[in-house]
Nucleic acid binder design. Sequence first.
DNA 1: CTGAAAGCGCTAACAC
DNA 2: GTGTTAGCGCTTTCAG
Lengths: 374, 374
Amino acid sequence: MPKVKIIDVAREAGVSLGTVSNALNHPDRVRPETRRIIQETIRRLGYTPNQSARLLAGGRNPMFGLVLPCLDHGFCLQIISGAQHEAKRNGYGLLVSNYNTDQTLRERYEDYFMGTQLAGVLVQATEPIDGAEYQTPSTPVVYLDTTGDAPAHFVTADCRAQGRLIAEHAIVRGAHHIAVMGSGLAPHIQLRLEGIREALSAYPDIALEVFDDAPWNDAEAGFQLGAQLARRTEEECPDFVIGLTDVLATGAIAGISAAGCAVPDDVRVAGCDGNILAWTGPISLTTCAPAGYEVGRKGVQLLLEQISARESVGPRHIDVKRRTSGVPQEARMTEPRVEIVRPFLLERESTSKGGAQGGPHGSDAAGVNLGTYL
Amino acid sequence: MPKVKIIDVAREAGVSLGTVSNALNHPDRVRPETRRIIQETIRRLGYTPNQSARLLAGGRNPMFGLVLPCLDHGFCLQIISGAQHEAKRNGYGLLVSNYNTDQTLRERYEDYFMGTQLAGVLVQATEPIDGAEYQTPSTPVVYLDTTGDAPAHFVTADCRAQGRLIAEHAIVRGAHHIAVMGSGLAPHIQLRLEGIREALSAYPDIALEVFDDAPWNDAEAGFQLGAQLARRTEEECPDFVIGLTDVLATGAIAGISAAGCAVPDDVRVAGCDGNILAWTGPISLTTCAPAGYEVGRKGVQLLLEQISARESVGPRHIDVKRRTSGVPQEARMTEPRVEIVRPFLLERESTSKGGAQGGPHGSDAAGVNLGTYL
DNA sequence: CTGAAAGCGCTAACAC
DNA sequence: GTGTTAGCGCTTTCAG
C-alpha cells in the first residue's frame, strides 16, 4: 500500500516539500500559478494528507466529535442536527458515534475523540458526571442532556418547564380533567410530570389522573390507554390527554380515534418532548419544540467559547524543562457552565381546530420546518 | 494545555516508556503487577493516548468511517445500524459523518477518514462513481446505494425486485386494479416502478394506474392522492395502492381512511422501501424489509474482506529506495465486487386482515423488532 | 519561494 | 520481562 506522501507531490510538481505544505495550509504564501500546479499534481496522484501526521505536527483539526447513546430517538437526531448546523456555520465538521447505551463503549469513543485531537467533543451522557472521577480534559468537552457535580460544562433541556408549558396550555384550552400517561423513572419523564403538577397546583378544580403503569412508553401503550379512556362515559372521560412523550401521545390519538372519539373535538391530546420521529400521524401533535436541536446547538457554542478562551491564554508548546514535577499542572479552562434550554410551545391540530400560534421564535408552529430540526 | 503523555505515565509509575506502551498494546508482555500499577497511574493522571501519534507510529485503528448524505431518512439510519452491528461484532467502532447532500463536504469527510487512517470507509453516494475520476484508495472503501463504472466495491439494494415483490403480493391478494403513486426521476423510484410493471406484464387483466405528478413524495401527497382515489365510485376505485415509498403509502392510508374507505378491507395499501421512520401510523404497513440495514452490514463485510486480503499480501513498510519513479505503483486490492441486497416481503395489516406471514428470516413480520433494524 | 532540520507522541524492534 | 532508539508524515522555522 505505498501511500502517496507530500514529498511525492513536491517532487512530481517540481517544487519543494515546504511549498506543498504551504499550498495546503497557507495558500496565501504561495504564488497562484504554483498553487495551481500543486493542486493539479495532488489530484493526479490522488494524494490524501495523513491527518495523523498533520495533527501530530501541530495542525489544527476543525472537527467536533459527538458521542451519543443511540440513534433511534428523535432527541438524538435533533442534537446531531443542531450541532451539525452550528458547527458548519463556524467552519467545523462533525463526527458522530453511537455507544448504544454501553458505558464502556462511551468511554472508548470519548477517549478516541480526545486522542484524535478533535477541536472539541460533545457527549450525551445517560448518567450523571461524577466529580470524583472527573479529570479535566485537555480537549474542550461539553456534556449534553445530563448533569453532575463535576466541574464540567453542561447543556440540558428544562424538562420540568416542558411539563409546565403543556399543562398551562391545557388550562388555557379549558381542560377540566387531564390524563397524563407515561411510566418509568427516567428523570425526563419524572420532571415533566413534576412540571405538570406544579402548573396544576394552582387549579385544584382540574382533575388529574396519572397512568404510569404501562411497561413501555411506546405508541402501543398510548393506543391502548387512549382507547380505554375514550370508551369511558362522557363524564369520566378526560378532556385533555398529555403524553409524557410524543410517541405516547401519537399512540393515544390513534387509540382515541379508534374508540370513536374525535381529536381534538372530544379530547385534546398533547405531547411533551418534541420528538420529530413521532410527528407522523394524521393529526398533527401539539408538543414542545424539539429541545434536542437547541441542546446540540448550544453545545457547539460552548465548545467554541472554550476554544477561543484557550487560544487567548497560553502557548501551545510548553517548555519541557520548566516542569517542576513530572505531572503537568491542571489545564486551564473557562468557568464551568450549565446552560439550560427552555422549551416553547408548538401548538398544532391535536389541541385546537383552528390555526396555530407562534412560539417565541415567531414561527408559525404548524409550519415549522422539520428539516430545520431534523 | 500540558497534556499528559506516555513518558509522564512511565516516570510516575516508575517504569520505562516502552513498558507503558507494551502495557497498552501488548498486555501479555507485561507482568500483571506492573500492568496494574501502570493502569492505576494512567487513571490517576488522566492519560489519554494521542491517537495521531499512535497511528502515525504504525498502530492499527479498529474503526470504520461511514459517510452519509443525510440523517433524516430511515434508509440512512438503517445503514448506520447495520454497519454498526456488524462492525461491533468484529471488534470495530464506527464513526459517522453527514455531508448533507453537499458533494464537496462528502469529499472532505472521505479524505478526512482516509487521512485519519481508519481501517475502512463506507460511503453512501448519491451519484454514480465515475471510473475516470476514480483513484484507487489506500484505505479499503465500499460505496453504498450507488453504482458506477469505477473499479470499486459496491453494495446496493435491488429496487426493481422491491417493486416486483410488492406487485406479486398484490396479485396474490387478488388485486384487479392497482394504483401506484410516486414521482421523480430518482433511480430508486423508477426501478421500483419498473419492477412493478415487470411483475404485472404477465397479468394483462390487472389494471394499472400510475400517479407520478405530485411535486413531492411526502405523506401529504400520499394523503391527497389516497383521499382522491377513495372518493371515486366503487368501480373506478383501485383495490390496491402501492406507494413507491413508505412515506407515500402511510400518507395514502390516512387519506383513504379520511375519505371513508377502510384499509385493508376496501383498499389494500403497501409501501416499497421499508422505511422505518414511516412505520408509525395506526395501521401497520406492508412493505419490503428495510434494505438499508443489510446494505450497511454487507458493506462492513466487504471492508473486512479487503482488510484481510491486504494483510495477507504485502509488508506494511516499503523500502523507499526501491521506488523507481517518485510515484508509487498501484495499490493492490481485492477484485472489485458488486453486492446486491435482495428484498423480502414484510406483510402487515395494510394488506391483510389476519395475522402476518413470516419472511425468509422466519420472523413474524408484524413483530419485527425495529430495534434490530434501526 | 527553496532546502534543511527540529520536533509532535507513540510503536516496534532491538539490545540488555 | 526492561530500557533505548529509529522512524511514522507532516508543519513550522530559519537561513538562503
